[in-house]
Amino acid sequence: MLFEEAEKIRWIGGEGYAFGGWTAAGALAAVLCMLLYCRRKGLKPGSGILMSLMSLVLGILCSRLFFCLLTQELGHMLPISGWIRVSGGGWSTTGIIGGVLLAGWLTARCTGQNAGDLLDAGCLALPLFMIFERLGEQTTIDFDISRVISEETEGGGWLNVQDVYGTYLAVFRIAAILAAALFIMLEIVSRMKKTERGDVFNVFLLLFGSIGILTESLRYDEFLSYHFVKFQMVGAALLLGGGLLAAALRCAKPSKKMKIASAVCLTLMVGLVIGLEFALDRTRTNPVLVYCGMTLTVGIPAVIGLLEIRTERKG
């Protein structure tokens, strides 16, 4: 091995992983965020801590499960004995989201609280966790970076990583910044007067879905992918589609125009994203133009969903 694959740290008298340290910090921040949100919303005592515990357990389990089921690293599925070898690496952020959403629903069932409140708590905490998790990726090597964007080996900014071969986009840092922006937006949404239960969850699905498609497209590390299919990008597209569907269902009187626009946008988005990915890989089209197109493609459905929610709340 030329380099240490995963940076080590001293941790409580032993040796731990730096990436684990970052995720632990993220988990702590997320738990505190959930607890504060539950208190702010006046939920039953104990709901917040139960939701936190369930999110941690299910987030870890689903993250590992998603990775083990979909990794193509070996050309075959990871043997079952490898599934429990967790310290050997292999986690998926899409799985974490699934785990937290499941935790919200289960906690609501256990405590008799409204699921919308607990899903809101989970979705507010998730971007906070993502900030730390993404920044932690800098402690692993050659991970979550873009294609080479120039041959410059010096003078790159914080959003770049550079080595002897050139400059790469540090997608993990871009994703961390976007997660921070998303957290701020969700925090604002959660404090707005005219919001209802489940709005934070809905906005999270729409925005995290569209951001996820972009950041997964930017990265070029073959993580959880098969041929051109990036499973985390598919997961993000499902979140966005789910967000649009939720917006349509939650609106008491969704306009026919909005419904048609949502369906058309979603269908077009899938086709366009596939086409743009192909253009990136197989043609010499300017990547900046491709990503402008990609931003529009994933941004329009998100905006339509947000407009649906806004229209509904304005009555």
Binding site: M1, E5, A6, I9, W11, I12, G14, G16, Y17, A18, F19, G20, G21, T23, A24, A27, L28, V31, L53, L56, V57, I60, T71, E73, L78, V86, S87, G88, G89, G90, W91, S92, T93, E137, T140, F143, D144, D221, F223
Partner: peptide
Amino acid sequence: IIVSMPWFVSSPHMLD
């Protein structure tokens, strides 16, 4: 769970 994470969460990708 949080305190134990640095011991078992090594990397998002599979180690060699």
